[in-house]
């Protein structure tokens, strides 16, 4: 599927903390960008040496602010190009393409109360979600953990707009966010987790242990986990072609660079559009779409985030 994109340019760059930069993107052809729903993200496409560097980032501006979009990017030590490129190479006035807003982390409609748990840069999707709830006049609270006040992105914005709803937890002050707060939420509450994998799984497990239904638990990994431990692997397609996936590439990127018309959409392992059949090989599943049974079966995988455990895979595109 060929996706329609929106050409934009970098209107301004602001350093929010020593590690986080905020980029303001303005439209080139249109006067307005599409408004979006709370929790939406965009895909950014930047032309690099090996094709496009594509990354998903939450929109951090207000949903009805349509003259420009804002995204906040943390420089990751493990970066394989995405955040590093954004931090070191992108300048004001640069052109790039972005997707239309997508929402794979929407607010629950039926929830009576919403509770957000953010760790570090995991705060980004919650900004637009809180703005939307404020407008809907629905109650919510935010529990936001960061190393220190200095390293806490959007600290003053949140203080200013959501002071009554927010509790900050700064580990340099030995104030740690614990999953025990999950004990206190009234019936009808939906909880949302965003942060590193370990943070999300600790809160998810505790919520499930307490008896929260799965549909009341929402979570989003703020970045596709690119670890330094990623290994290169070979993929053979049932149509015959062979493709090498380098350690810095996703399988999806490798397929597209090789001119294979592979389906995809969210690029964060959530929507399932890029699912392919696995004929041979073991998978390291990094998505949040497939069920545990499907993951253990090693018969399908999402190309946007998952990799090979073995050296070689044989896959079939539908």
């Amino acid at each position: 599927m060929k996706e329609h994109t929106i050409p934009v340019f970098i209107k301004s760059i602001e350093k929010l903390t020593p590690q986080v930069k905020q980029f303001t993107l303005s439209p080139i052809n249109m006067t307005k960008l599409p408004p979006f729903s709370g929790g939406s993200h965009i895909i950014t496409y930047i032309a690099g040496e090996n094709g496009f560097i594509t990354r998903a980032y939450s929109l951090t501006n207000l949903p009805d602010q349509t003259d420009s979009y804002q995204i906040a990017i943390r420089l990751s030590e493990n970066s394989n190009g995405g955040s590093k490129y954004w931090h070191e190479s992108i300048k004001m006035g640069d052109f790039l393409k972005i997707s239309y807003p997508k929402n794979h982390f929407p607010l629950s409609f039926k929830a009576k109360h919403h509770v957000f748990y953010a760790a570090g840069i995991g705060i980004t999707p919650f900004l637009s979600m809180m703005a939307e709830l404020r407008e809907r006049k629905t109650t919510f609270e935010l529990h936001y953990a960061s190393k220190s006040e200095d390293l806490c992105s959007f600290y003053s914005l949140i203080k200013e707009n959501f002071a009554d709803e927010t509790t900050f937890y700064f580990s340099n002050r030995h104030n740690k966010l614990s999953n025990e707060t999950l004990l206190d939420h009234r019936i009808g509450t939906h909880v949302y987790f965003c942060g590193p994998e370990s943070f999300i799984s600790s809160f998810r497990n505790e919520a499930e242990r307490l008896g929260y239904p799965k549909s009341s638990i929402h979570f989003e990994h703020f970045a596709v986990s690119f670890s330094k431990n990623n290994k290169a692997f070979q993929v053979k397609l049932t149509t015959g072609s062979s493709i090498s996936v380098s350690k810095d590439q996703t399988l999806l990127e490798a397929l597209l660079i090789n001119g294979i018309n592979a389906p995809y959409s969210c690029r964060v392992g959530r929507c399932g559009t890029c699912e392919v059949k696995v004929i041979e090989g073991e998978i390291e599943h990094n998505d949040t779409f497939l069920t545990e049974d499907q993951k253990n079966g090693h018969e399908c995988m999402l190309t946007c985030v998952s990799r090979a455990k073995s050296e070689k895979l044989v896959i079939q595109l539908n």
Partner: peptide, 10 residues
């Protein structure tokens, strides 16, 4: 009575 209940109740 119902509205006083916490999450995890069945």
């Amino acid at each position: 009575w119902l509205s006083q209940q916490k999450m995890g109740t069945y």
